[in-house]
Nucleic acid binder design. Structure first.
Lengths: 341, 341
DNA sequence: CTGTTAGCGCTTTCAT
DNA sequence: ATGAAAGCGCTAACAG
């Protein structure tokens, strides 16, 4: 007798057929009679053999059913950000429909080489902080879909950030406005600060710079210019970072009459600070957001913002990966006319 | 010449050493001189060989560096629930400190056998809906840590749900109160409804039933009984499900004067409905929550609730898994004395 | 310190 | 429809 191990070979001569037959019974039903297949499966079940070892299959077939989601920021942060969670939600929905598994991977960490040998593909959400990672992705020989940024020659999912920013700014700015911007990740700094005197991050890969360009273009149409001294950098879309910027902005003299925020979280924080100071919105201060998160839809006064569907983004990105689509998709957005403008 | 493939063997005779030496250079620095090691690593880099193939390593070593997080509910849902996100946050923090990867896995899906061959271990958050899954976990020969429920003989992380519920209820209930409970997952139904006339889920594995017992015990101390007609089942801790129950509870005649909620999300929803109706809290209606989420801490009136640290839970669960600890940990909780009681 | 070699468990031609 | 056998790429025991 062969050793009692629950391996294809062991099971094979336990029930007296060849390894290939068992393998086929599990993976390629068309290679044997339905009846024999049932028999074998039943036998296996009785013995306690639950099918071919996955690790071996991965090596042999070069496929694992695992898709890595690379998050630009830490998983920690992403999982508590409403925009990112919705995105993850979309991805995971499509993946699980296709029986794929989701590996959460933070772009901050070591090399993606760590997983690229067994993962079926990558969805990369947001431009990685370290440029090297983007280069590696390109040379990877695995399927990659980028979201909210682009890598030459790779499929992607985006919205037109500049146009969206332009649109909402156009509807907001009036000729006698004093304009400020609470921006997200505009420079390389881990603290909230004004951007004047700092080198901007590479504009090509940054949605924030596209948005800023949109704001500026709209301002220019009213013959206005947005001073770098009235543009804030906020390192992460979180309340406490945003609050700092909000306070500084509202302390500015003269006080801005229009403040455009690059996320709803930021805008909501600003709104709260402003209302607490008794500033009338929108009479004395107009506020715009970006994203269209649920909390903004629940809050009164209703925030005027750009609504993008992060769930759709996630679903589409996952579908592109699974279908090996190579297209660069641009999703629609919608301006929510709220009560803050 | 050997074929030009970037494999240990190929690289080995490309640079003229044995495969073992290269393998050691990457995995066991102590097996060769530092100098030789540097040389080899440099050569490999030049050639474009980034280290041993991971899929092969997994098969060979039986270790992947991947930890599966099994979520009782869909990933979709979990990722947008503040309590679950905090938990994931804690897990992912510890895991990434140890260079492990996180595989998000939904317990609704097929069998965990799908991944158990290559995953290093499982963290199971919340009692799985299908009992079979729990049984499989036990017979798995992989490290498992359960959270918010127990499996005999396996390590776990919990809080004392019954005692916590008892504590907050004791502080809340007065002798002339009319008590209702907005419960979570008390019966097997996908709709919000009262629990009278329904079979309860197995109490032993359900934190909700422990909490309910705590409430009942506290009520009994005041010589009171909580009628099943005033206990609601809410299938998921989400606003719209909670709202239904809140409306029904407030429509009850006589209207309850104390409503204990099994999550803050539920309590916050109830609070909103009550305030919208002009019901004075806590004068006419006392409300308690459970969890201690950030939104509750920001909301006014401040919610009286049980605060448990989901981040700590996640961190501890991950540490237990990595350390192969087998203990059953019980974490502390704290009663937040808010303004709703 | 280095090289040889036997598997890890499986899939898939190829021949029967 | 089935069986035999060649690897997938690597690690670790062993011998030198």
């Amino acid at each position: 007798m062969n050793k009692n191990k629950l391996t294809l070979k062991g099971v094979a001569d336990l029930i007296g057929v060849s390894t290939a037959t068992i393998s086929n019974a599990f993976n390629r039903p068309d290679q044997l009679s339905a009846k024999k297949r049932e028999e074998i499966l039943a036998q296996c079940k009785k013995i306690g053999y639950h099918g071919p070892n996955k690790a071996a299959q991965i090596l042999r077939k070069g496929e694992s059913g695992i898709v890595a989601l690379i998050l630009a920021d830490s998983i920690e942060y992403m999982v508590s950000d409403p925009v990112a969670s919705m995105f993850i939600k979309g991805v995971s929905r499509v993946l699980s429909e296709h029986n794929k598994h989701l590996l959460l991977f933070s772009g901050n960490e070591a090399s993606i080489r760590n997983v690229s040998d067994f993962v079926d593909g990558f969805i990369c959400y947001g431009a990685p902080h370290n440029r090297a990672l983007a280069d590696e992705l390109k040379s990877l020989a695995k399927a990659v879909v980028t979201v909210d940024f682009d890598i030459d020659g790779l499929p992607s999912v985006n919205i037109d950030n500049e146009q969206a920013a332009f649109d909402i700014a156009s509807q907001t700015i009036e000729s006698d406005d004093n304009i400020a911007v609470l921006g997200l990740k505009l420079i390389d700094a881990s603290q909230t600060c004004r951007i004047d005197g700092h080198a901007l991050l590479e504009a090509s890969t940054s949605i924030s710079h596209r948005r800023l360009n949109g704001y500026k273009r709209a301002a220019a149409q009213h013959g206005k210019n947005i001073d770098n001294h009235l543009i804030w950098h906020i390192p992460e879309s979180q309340g406490h970072y945003a609050k700092e910027a909000a306070v500084q902005a509202l302390d500015s003299i003269p006080r801005p009459t229009t403040i455009m925020c690059m996320s709803d979280i930021i805008a909501l924080e600003l709104l709260q600070v402003a209302l607490a100071r008794g500033i009338r919105v929108p009479d004395e201060l107009k506020i715009t957001g970006f994203d269209g998160i649920e909390e903004a839809a629940r809050t009164r006064p209703l925030l005027t913002t750009v609504c993008q569907s992060s769930i759709n983004k996630g679903e589409l990105a996952a579908r592109q990966l699974l279908n090996h689509s190579m297209s660069n998709e641009v999703l629609a957005y919608e301006i929510i006319a709220g009560e803050t403008v």
